[in-house]
Design a protein around this nucleic acid. Structure first.
Length: 262
DNA sequence: ATGACTACTCCCAGTAGA
């Protein structure tokens, strides 16, 4: 089973590249982040025409996540448990039946958390803690679990082009990395790193220049994290997507898991 | 260097992203 994840940065801006990529990569399940639209505005018909079942958890203007699956969803659930006040559309999960057993797929768009001295950072850490709770209970259910994450975390300096520029960034702070490690400790595998520890496998490109940050490939904020104790068989990002006429600032990442879909 | 880009929105100057 191939599970993919992609921060599209507006589904309406990225529909044509998405359709072309779905045809070529043919993932069984896709987690999309930053669809930036309400559910009614999501171009589901075009995607369904390629054989995907579509479920969305959108909101106006910002955030928003979607799950695409060649297999029908047995159940889906929107929103991350643990805070009724949280209105951000950042979490969506679904369960599909495989040849043997079922798999639970979660699509996560973590809060960025910057500026790190604002209230956005505690929101990020709390969100990660809530995600840990959800992952822990899912792990206890005994179902295989896969997840496509927009990580918003750097696990090591290998993940960034210029480590010195990220020291105090919300993505790289000690508390962020510790929280991410505790998530991995639940039995998840960072699929991109499981296949290769080569530095420089960036998945995000800076397009907005800022002091101390040149434009260009910047960091790996992002992975098809997957597992249920199963290591990823194959996984790679796809820098070629940056060559498209209207690229996202992120490229897709995917993992091939040892799960038979039919 | 008070910036630079891209996408959104009560349609266009303000906000957010990372």
């Amino acid at each position: 089973m191939r599970i993919a994840t992609w921060n599209v940065n507006s589904i309406r801006q990225r529909l044509e590249p998405l359709l072309a990529w779905l045809k070529e990569c043919s993932p069984d399940i896709v987690c999309l982040q930053e669809i930036k639209c309400v559910d009614e505005a999501f171009p589901r018909l075009e995607i369904e025409a390629l054989g995907y079942n579509v479920v969305t958890h959108g909101q106006k203007t910002f955030n928003g996540v979607a799950l695409l699956s060649k297999l029908p969803f047995d159940e889906t659930k929107s929103g991350l448990a643990g805070d009724d006040e949280d209105a951000h559309a950042r979490f969506l999960e679904g369960v599909v039946t495989l040849k043997r057993g079922v798999v639970r797929i979660a699509c996560l768009y973590l809060p960025n958390g910057n500026p790190a001295d604002s209230d956005k950072y505690p929101y990020k850490l709390k969100w990660m803690s809530r995600a840990s709770g959800v992952c822990a209970s899912a792990a206890q259910s005994g179902r295989a679990t896969g997840a496509g994450w927009r990580l918003q975390c750097h696990s090591s300096s290998q993940d960034v082009y210029n480590p010195a520029a990220w020291v105090n960034d919300a993505l790289f702070r000690t508390a962020t990395r510790e929280s991410f490690q505790s998530l991995l400790g639940l039995g998840l595998t960072d699929a991109l790193r499981a296949v290769s520890d080569t530095p420089g496998q960036y998945t995000f490109w800076i397009t907005r220049p800022a002091p101390g940050r040149r434009t260009g490939p910047a960091h790996r904020s992002f992975a098809a994290v997957a597992a249920g104790q199963r290591p990823a068989r194959g996984c790679r990002d796809r820098q070629l997507c940056r060559a498209w006429e209207k690229p996202s600032d992120h490229v897709p990442v995917w993992a091939d898991l040892d799960l038979e879909t039919a």
